[in-house]
């Protein structure tokens, strides 16, 4: 599988995740927010809380579930990126980090969407 295909999968997953969150009442602020070092998939606001969302997308679970790809290391990175963002914007109120795991079916449609709130818990 070429690199660009992975990227396409990821972008497709992020779109699905964004739509899913919007129907839940999350207001989209940024999508694919880039800093020099990293990228934050989605930044949303929900009930006055700033919610950073990491989206994980997979085409199949042959090589493990999307949940398994989020380890302690990745979570630490997410916290750092979120803090960098808040520092830049001068935001100092409540925030949270969520994860959305998307499993795509053969047609590129969402097979399963799992939303995990507050993964740094």
């Amino acid at each position: 599988m070429r690199k660009s295909e992975n990227l396409r999968t990821a972008r497709r997953g992020e779109e699905i995740a964004a739509r899913h969150l919007q129907t839940k009442g999350y207001r989209l602020i940024e999508q694919n927010y880039r800093t020099r070092y990293a990228e934050i998939d989605l930044i949303t606001r929900y009930k006055g809380i700033l919610v950073f969302v990491e989206v994980r997308t997979k085409r199949n679970e042959q090589f493990g579930s999307p949940e398994e790809t989020i380890n302690r290391n990745k979570i630490n990175k997410l916290i750092k990126n979120a803090q960098g963002y808040m520092l830049k914007k001068g935001y100092n109120k409540k925030y949270r980090i969520d994860a959305v795991c998307v499993l795509l079916d053969k047609n590129g449609e969402a097979g399963r969407i799992s939303h995990y709130e507050n993964i740094t818990l």
């Binding site: 949940e67 709130e117 993964i119």
Partner: peptide, 12 residues
Amino acid sequence: EVEVNLAERGLP
């Protein structure tokens, strides 16, 4: 006593 909790939040 073995206490088991299934949390609503957080990663599996």
